[in-house]
């Protein structure tokens, strides 16, 4: 840890404090995340071992924030683990905010939205191909390199890989605004669809510069969704009314999605619609999304 000089605290991550720091030898900026993983008599805890090695495997993709190193410090005789990640100076939330507020409010250029969404899909496809769900995708968790126009997925939590058989997970995971309806309705099985719903919400937010479904409670969140997309029925989403937290809701008819994202071209609206399918089995996968005509004008060779 003497290798790094802490510069400032930049936030509270999922596992604790995050510091911006500098590698004294190379000058490279890094993000230091202190984990709650303590070494004990048995050495490195098995869960930490399995999860950090999974994180390491994922960080091969340039669309996932790179895990550079794992450091340990002795604190009162107990080694603590720090994860050392590459540092990026902004995230998608700040990036969108800078286009909404401040001295020069303006829409995000369509080409930037297209490129960021493609990179996001690519990163998500990478995680999914390794059997890992993110489950907490939100603009704050997407780091941005403004100069290079690169977007990377961060805060891949520990303990999030799904295995065979699928376990049911605890419910407090996804930030409300990006939370998929099946999660809000208490499904016991999470699938890759939960991430794709979040990707859809993030897509819309880049276009609108404000959240698509800004609910402040689980019920309000559902009502936001139902008001735009219509109250779901068993025909369009088999089994929805048997989900644990299903109640009788007001019957809303679906609105025209394009009206929520008026500046988005028709191909983009079509892709968004496929991401916001109620039935998780019908929701487009990250891999399929990358092939959607919305990206036809994008030079994919650069990615």
């Amino acid at each position: 840890m003497e290798k790094y000089e802490k510069l400032e605290k930049v936030g509270e991550g999922t596992y604790g404090k995050v510091y911006k720091a500098q590698d004294k030898a190379t000058g490279q900026l890094v993000a230091l995340k202190k984990t709650r993983l303590e070494m004990d008599e048995e050495g490195i805890p098995p869960t930490a071992l399995r999860e950090i090695s999974l994180l390491q495997m994922l960080s091969r993709s340039i669309y996932v924030v790179r895990l550079l190193n794992v450091e340990h410090v002795d604190k009162n005789g107990k080694p603590l683990l720090y994860l050392v990640f590459e540092y990026l100076d902004t995230d998608l939330k700040k990036f969108i905010d800078s286009h909404r507020k401040g001295p020069n409010p303006r829409p995000l250029p369509p080409s930037v939205i297209q490129s960021f969404l493609y990179q996001l899909c690519k990163g998500v496809a990478h995680c999914h191909s390794h059997g890992v769900l993110h489950r907490d995708l939100k603009p704050q968790n997407l780091l941005v390199d403004k100069e290079k126009g690169i977007l990377k997925i961060a805060d891949l939590g520990l303990g999030r890989a799904f295995t065979i058989p699928l376990k049911s997970y605890t419910h407090e995971i996804v930030t409300l605004w990006y939370r998929a309806p099946e999660v809000l309705l208490g499904t016991t099985h999470y699938s890759t669809g939960v991430d794709m719903w979040s990707v859809g919400c993030i897509f819309a937010e880049m276009v609108r510069r404000q959240a698509l479904f800004p609910g402040d409670s689980e019920l309000q969140q559902l009502l936001h969704i139902f008001r735009l997309l219509g109250t779901p029925t068993d025909e369009q989403w088999p089994g929805v009314s048997s989900l644990r937290d299903w109640h009788e809701y007001p019957q809303w008819k679906p609105q025209t999605l394009a009206r929520a994202v008026p500046t988005l071209e028709p191909e983009g609206v079509d892709l968004l619609l496929k991401m916001l399918q109620y039935d998780p089995a019908n929701r487009i996968s990250a891999k399929a999304a990358m092939e959607h005509p919305y990206f036809d004008g994008l030079d994919k060779s650069q990615f």
Partner: peptide
């Protein structure tokens, strides 16, 4: 999360058709 030498990437069977080819 458990490491399975035959499936180090922890892909569940039901997800296999939805993800980019894990074998790559």
């Amino acid at each position: 999360m458990e490491y399975d030498p035959e499936n180090p990437l922890t892909i569940s069977n039901e997800e296999q058709h939805r993800v980019s080819d894990p074998i790559e």
